[in-house]
Simulated assay, not measured.
Amino acid sequence: MKIDSHQHFWKYNPVKDAWITEEMKVIQKDFLPTDLKPLLIENQVDGCVAVQADQSEKETRFLLELAKDNDFIKGIVGWVDLCAENIDERLEYFYKYKKLKGFRHIIQAEADLDFMLSERFLNGISKLEKYKFTYDILIFPKHLENAAKLVERFPNQNFVVDHLAKPDFKNKEFSEWEKGIKAIAKYPNVMCKVSGLVTEADWNNWTATDFMYCLDVVTEAFGIDRLMFGSDWPVSLLAASYADSCDIAEQYFSKFSKGDQDKFWSKNAINFYQLHE
């Protein structure tokens, strides 16, 4: 069995999706379940977790509607304003949606490097455990130090680092990233997604070997029990096909035992996001 723990859907809007620049023209269009389903079948992937791309409750409801009509969408990572004064009320509201497994905020876009340690954001994170919601950490290497402080504060909250925290594959400058990723991996309540690799590399000239060093680092730091596969489709189409994204992980993890491969490809994601519920 295979689960893609990280992909996105959207109806493209040039205002809402202004982050999709002209150099990203290949993804300046709609991407919906009808586009993903044949790719999952072709690559023998049994289900996926759809992750927010826009910071609005409208986005969360949009993903929930798609999940209602498509059984292969096993879980949703939505968005809610974690800094809101009525955060309890909003989490109570969303708790009734069984496919909604957790939330994410686009920390990497915040101008304030200390945003995730602000009092209001920490208050929001503190409420998630009550509702068994997970939290996806979307950051750059420069944020890892603060991310470690965040997860240390909430030892019973389940966190997952998206995209290995985006190491600089293009320039192969890994020192800050390696120090930070090893530090955050020391906390047992944190997992890591092997996802979004190709978009941090040279889009036109990457090879699978570009990723091996960082995969070695996270595998040693987190262990096979705390890693999960994610495609980051359709953002990944900037640099690779869906099959290519799968192949990078296949090449690396093929040397592991069948049991460990099952953990990486499905069991860890199923347990983290409670996809069997």
Rank of each mutant, 00 (worst) to 15 (best):
D30H: 03
A208Y: 13
M228K: 08
M1E: 11
V77W: 00
D260N: 14
A243H: 14
N189W: 04
C83D: 01
K172T: 08
Y95V: 02
F62C: 12
P14L: 05
K74F: 06
A221F: 03
K186Q: 14
V194Q: 02
D112P: 03
I107R: 02
L215F: 06
W79Q: 06
F103I: 14
K127E: 13
L150F: 01
G47I: 05
S257N: 10
L138G: 00
A240F: 11
G102H: 00
L64Q: 03
F272L: 15
L215I: 14
V51W: 04
E178L: 06
H276K: 10
F62K: 10
I106V: 06
K255S: 11
K25Q: 10
F9I: 02
T60K: 02
I125T: 05
R104P: 10
F115Y: 10
D71M: 06
Y95Q: 07
L227T: 07
Q44S: 11
A269V: 02
F159D: 04
K29P: 01
N205P: 08
D35V: 13
Q108T: 08
K99W: 00
T219I: 09
L138C: 14
T134A: 08
E176W: 01
I73L: 07
D17Y: 12
Y187P: 00
V198Y: 01
D112H: 05
N189P: 09
T219L: 06
E178C: 04
T134V: 13
M191Q: 02
T209W: 03
F154C: 09
V51K: 02
N13T: 07
L238Q: 08
Q52G: 10
G196C: 09
E89Y: 08
S236I: 14
F115R: 03
M116R: 01
A221V: 06
L275Q: 11
D247M: 10
N268K: 02
G230P: 01
E59V: 12
S175C: 05
G180F: 01
N156G: 14
F159M: 09
W177V: 01
L100V: 11
S195I: 08
V45I: 15
A148G: 02
F174P: 12
I76Y: 00
K142P: 02
V151Y: 08
W203S: 00
A111G: 10
C246Q: 15
S266C: 14
M212D: 11
